[in-house]
Simulated assay, not measured.
Amino acid sequence: MSFFQSLAAALTPAGLLWTLLIIGVATFLHELAHFALARWQGVAVKSFSVGMGPVLLRRPWRGTEWRLSLLPIGGYVEIDGMAPEEGPGGTYRQPTRGYAVLPTWGKIAVLLAGPLMNLVLAVGLMTVNFSAQGVPQEPRTDRAQIVDVLPGTRAQDLGLRAGDVITAIDGRPLPRTYTRNGQTRPGWESLRDALARDGRRTFTVEREGATRQVTFDWQARVAGVQQRLGIQYGPEVIYRRLSVPAAFVTSLQTTAEAVPQILRAFGGLFTRFFSLDFSQDQNVSGPIGTAEVVSRAAALSPWALVQVAILLNLSLAFFNLIPIPGLDGGRILLTLVGALRGRPLTLAQEQAINVAGFAFVMLLMVFVVVRDVSRFF
């Protein structure tokens, strides 16, 4: 397939809409938290924009201009006293009001509010997920659950879907365990052995409580090339629902356990960036990779979308706390440096640091997007 055909196959319209909605809600609440902490401390907020770029609609309300902007990729708040103010003769100077005169703890509270909101949202969604869907238990090894169906493959033509559970092959139930090359293997792996042989195959498939038979002729190799059915699969996962208090505690534990993994993922991204390594990394995705994951989740179940939203909010929270100028973590670092020095950085110093940080973040975004796009060539 061509690049555009591959891209169209990976990104569904529903997936794109869900991507915009999930990212839009996460960003809106992030900026709303900055807005709320500034207003709570008596600092004016000049504007609040949903979206970036050219402003489509604007309406003043309670001292803030609320905007709807063209590009649905985030948003921003313009807090009084955070940006340099214009002085005489068209020069700029350090601001002398609003955010600039807050105590150190007040500034940090405004900056921390956004990432903490994403963290709270992730914990809240996890609590709902664990209490409504449940937490995964010991998987069933005698049932193979399809995790993903690759576009344009034989599996898609046969009508197989993510979430389908294969319980039997050619009328024989999958065993709990079986032996391959003298080693004991879980029964769901026998699906691979069945596809290593030519002949007519019949899968017994369960979907939403109903059972159906999927029969097809199969050639394991064509012109010496190993054929692929086009499914990713694993053992069926059984879920156990929790009470809301237990789900909340489990959510906090899960978040704490996820922190090292997220930090390692970002560390791997920076290593690849500095070494210009464009090899694929399943731990960090750019906008296209995220839309592809959401497209697959949308085809699987609503709970899969919730899990993507949880991961996205956790990633946003911790990424924004990285001490890079231009991010919330970088601003917090500069605030702490000013407090330790007993005086803030000069306007020239702060602008130079922020420009360098912004340039770094933009280059990092370009790197991630290029790596995303390269997969389709």
Rank of each mutant, 00 (worst) to 15 (best):
L305Y: 08
T254P: 04
I73W: 11
Q253V: 08
H30F: 09
G51E: 07
Q183L: 14
L57C: 10
R375P: 00
A196Q: 13
R341F: 07
V135G: 01
G357L: 10
S243K: 01
L71M: 11
V249K: 00
A356P: 11
L37Q: 12
Y92N: 03
Q282T: 00
R212T: 14
D80M: 13
A83W: 04
V361N: 11
V244K: 03
R192L: 15
Y233F: 14
P235A: 15
V149N: 09
A33M: 04
R341V: 02
D142K: 09
I288A: 14
V369M: 14
P235F: 13
P186S: 04
H30I: 05
L17T: 11
L29I: 15
A26I: 02
R221Y: 15
F48Q: 09
S6H: 07
A297E: 04
I288Y: 13
L276N: 08
I23R: 02
L121Q: 04
I23W: 02
P325Y: 04
L17Y: 04
A256T: 00
T153C: 06
V123Y: 01
K107L: 06
G182N: 09
V373N: 01
A194I: 03
A348W: 00
A33F: 01
L305E: 02
R172K: 15
D328Q: 06
T335W: 00
V294G: 06
I108G: 03
S275P: 05
A309S: 14
Y233G: 09
F248H: 08
L252P: 03
F3H: 05
Y76K: 02
L333D: 04
Q227R: 14
A14H: 08
L321N: 06
G87D: 12
W218Y: 12
R296H: 09
S49E: 06
V25P: 05
I262R: 06
P173D: 09
E138I: 07
R59Y: 13
R97C: 10
D193W: 00
R331N: 14
V77G: 02
R161G: 12
T96R: 01
L112F: 15
Q145F: 10
P235Q: 12
D148K: 14
A299D: 13
